[in-house]
């Protein structure tokens, strides 16, 4: 177990370093001199020279990368041109919304995707199964922002059940503010629930063909107990990893949804920063998301191993 964990952590670290090189390179390949990029168009020549020296841009590129990486490790992602504030604090401001949105989305995904997937698998080959699988494919084919706009149209504009945009922090307005996230999380949940549904179904069917399921049936236990005790647990083992993966992907997938619902999250921050040419923020957000993505995947991989007793041997 430990050697596996170390090995897996090692690959993650290598990937992370390689990704960080790409992200570092990003600021050097965007159109224009990085100095102008960092200072904006209104910089004076003195400021430019000072910053060039301060950033070490007169140094060899490898040294530049190491300096940058050193800063990153210290938690310094540079300064936002637009906000005139550290990138870390700009990102931290959006983190609450993004994490809560992703969490709420995952709750819908788990509540819809898993049980419906189980039902489809148990009724394998019937009209119900075909209908549910077809519906899942349809859900995966709908753009989230279109769903979002319809949710706004129906539940916000027509019925007035939920607010249509924005999100005031729960730390200021209390938990009731979560209602701002209901519609966006539903929109975001649609394609992801579809994915988990299909995965749960496929995984259940896979497991139900296993010899040990036949053994369980031969014992004379009831069909739903066979499902509960033997198929479900083993099938969900595979779904668990998809959950981590989906959660990590949601942090960036939310870009469009956060824009539709004008949520102050990381996704909207990226889009606005692109339009504002606030490159340090874009760079910082990409870095944070990639790190989160890799770490979550690492954790999922490791926990997956812990859940499966067979690893003791390895």
């Amino acid at each position: 177990m430990w050697s596996f964990a170390l090995k897996r952590a090692g690959t993650t670290a290598v990937t992370l370093v390689a990704a960080s090189v790409m992200i570092f390179a990003f600021i050097h390949v965007v159109p224009g001199d990085p100095i102008y990029v960092l200072l904006g168009d209104t910089a004076t020549p003195d400021q430019i020279d000072a910053l060039r020296h301060q950033l070490g841009l007169d140094q060899p590129i490898i040294l530049q990368y190491l300096t940058w990486a050193g800063h990153v490790l210290e938690g310094d992602l540079g300064r936002s041109i637009f906000f005139q504030a550290p990138v870390t604090s700009v990102i931290a401001d959006g983190a609450e919304t993004s994490i809560l949105l992703a969490t709420m989305t995952m709750i819908w995904v788990a509540l819809i995707g898993v049980p419906v997937g189980v039902i489809a698998a148990v009724r394998h080959g019937t009209w119900l199964d075909q209908g549910l699988s077809g519906a899942a494919m349809l859900m995966a084919s709908i753009p989230t922002f279109w769903v979002g706009l319809y949710l706004i149209l129906i539940f916000a504009a027509r019925l007035g059940w939920f607010p249509s945009s924005g999100y005031p922090s729960i730390f200021e307005g209390g938990v009731i503010n979560l209602r701002y996230l209901v519609l966006p999380s539903l929109a975001l949940a649609a394609p992801n629930a579809a994915l988990i549904l299909r995965l749960t179904r496929a995984s259940m069917l896979d497991v139900s063909r296993e010899d040990y399921v036949r053994t369980a049936r031969a014992k004379g236990i009831r069909p739903w107990q066979v499902v509960r005790r033997h198929i479900l647990r083993n099938a969900l083992l595979a779904v668990v990893s998809a959950f981590g993966f989906t959660f990590a992907a949601l942090l960036s997938e939310a870009v469009v949804t956060e824009t539709v619902f004008a949520l102050p999250g990381i996704g909207r921050l990226v889009v606005q920063s692109i339009l504002r040419r606030d490159y340090p923020v874009i760079q910082g957000v990409i870095l944070v998301i990639v790190v989160a993505y890799l770490l979550i995947n690492l954790l999922v991989d490791l926990s997956y191993r812990v859940l499966d007793p067979r690893v003791e041997l390895q």
Binding site: V255, V270, I274, I286, I289
Partner: peptide, 13 residues
């Protein structure tokens, strides 16, 4: 390691 949409956005920039 880069989510698809993020990769696309970075490239567009």
């Amino acid at each position: 390691a880069f989510p698809t949409l993020l990769l696309a956005l970075g490239l567009i920039v």
